[in-house]
Design a protein around this nucleic acid. Sequence first.
DNA 1: AAAAGCTGTCGAAGCGCTTCGACAACCTAT
DNA 2: ATAGGTTGTCGAAGCGCTTCGACAGCTTTT
Lengths: 338, 338
Amino acid sequence: MVTLAEVAQHAGVSASTVSYVLSGKRSISATTRQRVEQSIRELGYHPNAGARALASSRSNIIALMIPLRTDMYVPVMMEIAIAVATTARTHGYDVLLLTGEEGPDAVRRVTGSGLADAMILMDVQLDDERLPLLRGTDQPSVLIGLPADTAGLTCVDLDFKATGALCVEHLAMLGHRDIAVIGEAPAVYERHTGFAERTLDGLRARSQELGMRLLHRPCEGGYDAMAVTLARIFDERPSTTGFVVQNESAVEPLLALLRQQGRAVPEDVSVVAICPDQVATQASVRLTSVSIPAQEMGRHAVEQLAAKLDGRGSDEVVLIAPELTVRASTGPAPTATH
Amino acid sequence: MVTLAEVAQHAGVSASTVSYVLSGKRSISATTRQRVEQSIRELGYHPNAGARALASSRSNIIALMIPLRTDMYVPVMMEIAIAVATTARTHGYDVLLLTGEEGPDAVRRVTGSGLADAMILMDVQLDDERLPLLRGTDQPSVLIGLPADTAGLTCVDLDFKATGALCVEHLAMLGHRDIAVIGEAPAVYERHTGFAERTLDGLRARSQELGMRLLHRPCEGGYDAMAVTLARIFDERPSTTGFVVQNESAVEPLLALLRQQGRAVPEDVSVVAICPDQVATQASVRLTSVSIPAQEMGRHAVEQLAAKLDGRGSDEVVLIAPELTVRASTGPAPTATH
DNA sequence: AAAAGCTGTCGAAGCGCTTCGACAACCTAT
DNA sequence: ATAGGTTGTCGAAGCGCTTCGACAGCTTTT
């Protein structure tokens, strides 16, 4: 393995000079710089990560905690992870992948060992056990998601409340009055994962304001669960003409069942989905949807951290404004047409 | 930040003694050990990762290179990544997430900088540019996937050739004679990603042996692409009664289109999928499938590496035997029933 | 012409840990 | 009782880097 000292010798300068060429923290004459860079290239030198971390107290690593369970939003998680990794590289950081498995201990371990300079947490519960630890350390962190109390924290998330409102507004504008919400699996609500409840808040508040009737049913993914849920909905409120779906794995079952029951989309019922664009465009009906900007969230989180690590940036909550794209799954409410 | 020296002082021993308590590399009396462990707990000590890496030339980190593109097998990638991360932790390793973006440079960077002790590579091309680099370093690595030349490499993968054969056998046993393969997107074949071609090899070889006729059509995911592909297949070979699907995002479109055309599954046509179990059980028809053992591959890869890093283990190719689970999408060929 | 200020480079200290050799203290075999 | 082992602990060196202070050699100011 090539060391700094070897590069220095090869270039005929001292070790510190090479270090300053690398870091740019002191001015170096053009000729010396070139000579050093040449030596670096010729010898194929890569600075040793451990030594660097030890000497500078900076690992240039960002830790990313992803949820262990894969009961929801797998493609979203993946997209975020990839966006985080690629964005981090452009800022000179690598990404350490931690699963939720260790729980709060992972936070202790990472901050205590100096393994990473900063952390990104996903799958944040409203009252997450990791939050006190984050508040008690001076290591920067960003949450993707929104806990109940955001004081002293930096968060990035889609504005799910506005998302809920937006879905309702779109359906209202089309004349729908009775709408049903196919929610996430019950477990997601029990866990108090913020986004599900916030969406529901938005849906409820706006539908009330607009004088609409709303039915909310959590739903596991898959056909059987969906069949039961759908039957119940039409049983309780046969006049339902609008659906909002917030569960990727319920989308296709819902469409198939509606089709099977002879209810045409969008002529008889309209469906709005809250899902990544990819799902919306690949479904059997091209879905009107509010997209989940996974990449943007991941990128934003890293940029916040990079700013904080540079001494810039501060704590703030960034809620990304939802955007609804009209596709082929929504249309005027049937009663509104005559 | 608490240091080894502070722990040593607190426990009234030397730094090296604390180090040996931690590593277990020399015998320590029970009383001393307990005193040290007590101090560690009281002070909340975590060894500094950088210092440890520098002194021991071991980072206790495994690098995982995942593909940047998300055009296939997203849930599989995710499952592998999670399995790798959790298994790594049980062996005392953390996982560094690298995307394919950097290409071969990532390998150079990681091995050169001592960032990681070992690497796991996914999305391996038949003639991958990273392979020469891996062969030229003494850093252990494992490929998830199979390149053309495996000399000097350790690989883990599903035995896709046997998988292809198994699918054909199952359909043959049910009396099907004309079968169609809905393959991965054309780009996957062009990239020469081994698994797709190996599956095809297995399908072709076994169907020839069994005197069956086989049609192979690559297919992008989604409804439109599937509609075109399916039309072409029934056009060219109307007698087709068996399908093998190797593209998750083609599964649901295929089923929907068949249903729409009045072809009952499994009465008129049978469908065998090659996909994770989760997809097979959540589809609109419970699919007979060969599962992709993502977790097992991830776990196995880490265990191979852990063994190598312990000086045990050696280069070998492990092909996991496919298992076909019969569900509700396959049945006797229609002509075979009378 | 002296003082003051830059610029570019160097030497040395030290980051927190692992690990090697040394050695005291004890135990066992002769 | 002595030589030869064990066992448990310590001190010191050193891993490869960053960074601070020093300073030589300039240029600019007074």
